[in-house]
Design a protein around this nucleic acid. Structure first.
Lengths: 210, 210
DNA sequence: CCATCTTTTGACAGCTACTCTCATTTCATG
DNA sequence: CATGAAATGAGAGTAGCTGTCAAAAGATGG
């Protein structure tokens, strides 16, 4: 009816024939819901898009939409980079200066996120700026990333991952990255995100004292 | 019926007889709604407390509740410290080291917030930990504080307040403060918040380098 | 003190995100 | 193909939130 199910993706179900039909269908449904949502949001805006519409276009029932995503914001936002980032962090040599590690891993995470679908990245950050609910949800998920960062930092520095110091340090990084995304989106995605990221890490490293 | 309207507050309407009856009633209603909410939340928890219950106890209609607070979370969270903080920031001598200024102002803001009502501070931070919606809303309001911080930093350093560097720096501070509150609440408010604040500012100043 | 104008309020209807339950369908397995 | 498990859809229900409109309460001028 709408060709949505043929939407290409780096992880299309066809790539994993080892999975049962059930699993493959689930992945397909998930993708259909997300694709439908992106399309509708681009057409009408986030608030004007209802779950019912999404369900209709994705050719599932509204119940199913909620079975796949806990909230409407999650449909737009959910990604699964955290484990990947964690893996990269661990893969870096232990004697590498921490800031270099951070720089490297963040750059890599960004290029990964962009590759998946540049346009989606833009839509996401755009929504972050425009829709308070989405921004909030984004911050939520960032704080999850934060606890993960704590873990990595603790491993590297031998500190307690639950110590105030580690947690504060991690969250200041998260806050900084968050703001960088907002800045990028607010300025119409004109800048090269990687350059912004570099500047951000400079501030984190040396403070504002240029 | 419940003595709510007699709730003491540093800014009770009786203190400002210069205001018309209309204005005084508005302030009273606002306080009644908030007090009713705090009480109900303490009794039943946040989620179990409905707007209808709040309205009933505050002796207003549900419509009125929404006229005073845009969302349920706002009833619990809204405070008006930002302008005060801003004022304090400006009042510090321009040649004082920035970190000293920050330290002083934050300490002052905290003691101000505590004085108003220590128990409310605890309930608030407790809800921040327990209720995702409240935490999100809190982060939202923190980002407002963030743009205010940008202004102050820009004034002090002569930089552009919309520059990436200033915004990133401000948000890293906000993130850090946020996490400090969470830490405090998660650990059952056992620590002295001022001490935590000092440790946080140390991390911001010197990084994690012990 | 009364009449008039304005602000505030309450009642009500309506929308939508989200939850829960249960019967039906769809896939997996021996 | 039969049996069991998982996924789905339908429907009812809750609650946050919006908007409208008429009634009530405070402000104002004569």
């Amino acid at each position: 009816m709408n060709g949505m199910t043929a939407a290409p993706s780096p992880f299309s179900p066809a790539d994993r024939p080892q999975l049962g039909l059930r699993e493959r269908k689930k992945i397909k449904t998930r993708e259909a819901i997300r694709t439908a949502t992106y399309a509708l949001v681009k057409e009408q805006g986030y608030d004007a898009t209802t779950i019912e519409q999404i369900a209709e276009r994705a050719e599932v029932s509204p119940s199913t939409v909620f079975r796949y995503f806990p909230t409407k914001e999650d449909i737009v936002l959910t990604d699964e980079f955290d484990p990947l980032i964690m893996e990269e962090l661990r893969a870096r040599p232990a004697d590498e200066p921490w800031m270099d590690t951070l720089r490297y891993v963040m750059q890599k995470a960004v290029s990964l996120g962009m590759k998946e679908d540049e346009e989606v990245s833009r839509l996401r950050t755009h929504l972050m700026v425009q829709v308070p609910a989405v921004r909030s949800r984004m911050m939520e998920s960032m704080s999850v990333t934060g606890t993960m960062l704590c873990e990595a930092i603790a491993e590297r520095t031998g500190r307690d991952q639950d110590s105030l110091e580690v947690r504060v340090y991690a969250m200041s990084i998260i806050g900084a990255l968050m703001e960088t995304s907002l800045y990028w989106a607010e300025n119409g995605h004109r800048d090269d995100f990687k350059v912004l990221l570099d500047r951000t890490l400079d501030v984190l490293e040396h403070g504002l004292s240029e």
